[in-house]
Design a protein around this nucleic acid. Structure first.
Lengths: 161, 161
DNA sequence: TTAAAATTTAAAGTTAACTTTAAGAAAGGA
DNA sequence: TCCTTTCTTAAAGTTAACTTTAAATTTTAA
């Protein structure tokens, strides 16, 4: 089964010019061409595209993905470098997930804050809620976010962010 | 306690020109100026910067952060819109974390794959490992990644990505 | 008081990853 | 065959988020 660039665009959601751009950048070196120079994608090319999407999601730049593909083409002599690349990227994604969990904590707090502000009619009313009336799960989040005292009571005239 | 832009740069790790850029874009409307026009940062400005970093990590663009700050300045009449903004962003971060977990699965598989290729001396040797010799935790990951058959045995002359 | 270091601005430059445009060639249906 | 759609390329344009430059203050330390 062969696919045109339009088919692949539809199946992957990537615009055809993006696919041509990836090809031009050396990310799709396995795509064959018909007589007239028209690209004929196979299932394996779609798999490469899925891997590319995944590597992009992991934070790899296009030139780094090309580097990996070049290593792949070179064969078994590059196993160590490919291994290193995946370990580096795995650690990077693990760090990114931890960072996002921290961000999620802040956003969860802010959602509670504005839910409550919406109920009470003002931001100040939320800031004046006594510690013992704050839900435990929110308190827990606040504790984790010690460096943000933007979440505490307003002191004097300083505005809370 | 007041800080110059150099102090803030050192404390936050953000280059001074980046701080000026944020200020120019309206992200730091609370920073005061001395007689000569020199910025004097307060603790609350540092807190705003921490919030900005967090919102950026959540995927918000600078113009969206500015929008939030404008809403903040407008006061209690914008509580609903701010609430909506945080809910939207929270959901976006939750999706991003799920996406990254999928990416992490692939990377974990690839790390195992190249660890094993390194041991066995070739990629093909790994592809020829019988199903029942593959560690359970790797099998589990493979099952989750059904859409990537780039991880299975080589069929005919098709290259695995 | 004076020299060096840090700050200011506006404006131009950079980078990555596309996206758009234009003009032409190939494929597919009537 | 002819017409419409889809494909091709190269080149220019776009966007976000800085980063760099240059020239002019202002601050600080000696």
């Amino acid at each position: 089964m062969l696919y045109t660039i339009g088919d692949v665009s539809e199946r992957t959601g990537l615009p055809a010019p993006t696919l041509r751009y990836y090809d031009k950048e050396g990310l799709l070196p396995f795509v064959n061409r018909g007589n007239g120079g028209i690209r004929k994608f196979q299932e394996t090319d779609l798999e490469w595209l899925r891997l590319i999407e995944c590597l992009k999601a992991s934070g790899l730049q296009i030139k780094d993905i090309k580097r990996y593909i070049d290593l792949f083409i070179q064969g078994d002599s590059t196993i160590e470098e490919r291994r290193q690349l995946f370990y580096t990227q795995k650690e990077s994604v693990e760090r990114e997930i931890e960072l996002l969990k921290g961000t999620l904590n802040l956003l969860t707090y802010k959602c509670w804050f504005y839910d409550t502000a919406s109920e009470l009619g003002s931001v100040e009313a939320v800031q004046n809620i006594p510690e013992n009336k704050i839900p435990p799960h929110i308190k827990k989040i606040k504790a984790k976010m010690a460096r943000f005292h933007c979440c505490g009571k307003k002191k004097k005239s300083a505005q809370a962010s």
